[in-house]
Design a protein around this nucleic acid. Structure first.
Lengths: 163, 163
DNA sequence: AAATTTATCTCAGCAAAGCTGACATATCTT
DNA sequence: AAGATATGTCAGCTTTGCTGAGATAAATTT
């Protein structure tokens, strides 16, 4: 259907050489990281869709379980999303009885977040397959390599943000 | 506003203990991985939003540059998304002149995908900050650790899928 | 030659999870 | 009393997934 007669693309030359040729860029790790993360989150995704929850709920449940008593502001800072985005999933988790809010003892404007018993169970159920996957990936690794992997993952984070 | 008089949540007990206590689950790596990936994709995200593209475009541009001549079916298999999801971003990339389609020489039903010159440049520009981040994360790592990280990331992938 | 399968594209619509802007409320600080 | 802070909420937008239904062109099988 008149593919080359359009006004925009005046037939730019396609390139047939794979990109690995450049040598400067570490494409191998970039791809390994992409595939690793894609499969890493697929386990909890499968569990969550039974409850009608998604990846966003997972993150909230995880961090509230790891840091009981954290505030909404803490959570926003950790997840780097906006208040309105968080509000929706947080409300669903509270309504479903996985998370509870308690007014801060010092500052009563704050809403400190705690998991309920079922919230704790959910977080553990979601973490379990991920943990097994990690153990499998570490099979046969020396202590030095295990530490090296942690250092690598830490090193991938932003040093500090100006926000 | 009548928080505990609702019909659904009959005040389940909140838990105040952090989840690390269980000992069975490797929460540390789970979180490191989350933060590492969050920041890893933030660099290209920032570049892409100038062009009006998103993360999905990045993935397509990346893999087409890595594997020039791959078909739409190959790409679907790599990304594990549906045809209709891919169609949208692929069309935008073709219309914008970053990717070209060529009918397969053997099987003329196929659309083999190639980057244009600007598509190659875009892919390199997106990979560059990620590659620098990786180099930084590897700073001071021995060859053994570098290999160990690759093995770890490979090990995180699904072994094989039944699809 | 006809029928079927395959590779791709398209249309229409839905959902999750991000986003912005604006505003309300309760509470703390000055 | 005034202002700042922590949170909640309303309305609406975007991206990127999804599904179902169908069209087209080309290859394959009968």
């Amino acid at each position: 259907m008149s593919r080359q007669t359009g006004p925009k693309a005046s037939k730019p030359e396609p390139l047939a050489t794979p990109m690995e040729d450049t040598g400067i860029i570490d494409f191998e790790i970039i791809e390994l990281f992409f595939f690793a993360y894609r499969d890493f989150v697929s386990d909890p995704d499968a569990i969550l869709e039974k409850s009608g929850f998604g990846r966003a709920h997972h993150r909230v449940v995880h961090f509230v379980n790891r840091n009981p008593g954290m505030t909404v502001a803490d959570l926003l800072d950790t997840l780097k999303i906006t208040k309105q985005s968080l509000a929706r999933v947080l409300k669903q988790l509270i309504d479903s009885g996985y998370i509870r809010q308690v007014a801060g003892p010092e500052d009563r404007r704050q809403r400190k977040l705690y998991p309920t018993k079922s919230g704790r169970e959910l977080a553990l159920a979601l973490a379990e397959p991920q943990s097994r996957r990690i153990e499998r990936a570490f099979e046969g690794a020396s202590a030095e390599v295990r530490e090296g992997v942690k250092a690598f993952l830490s090193g991938m984070r932003d040093r500090q943000r100006a926000d």
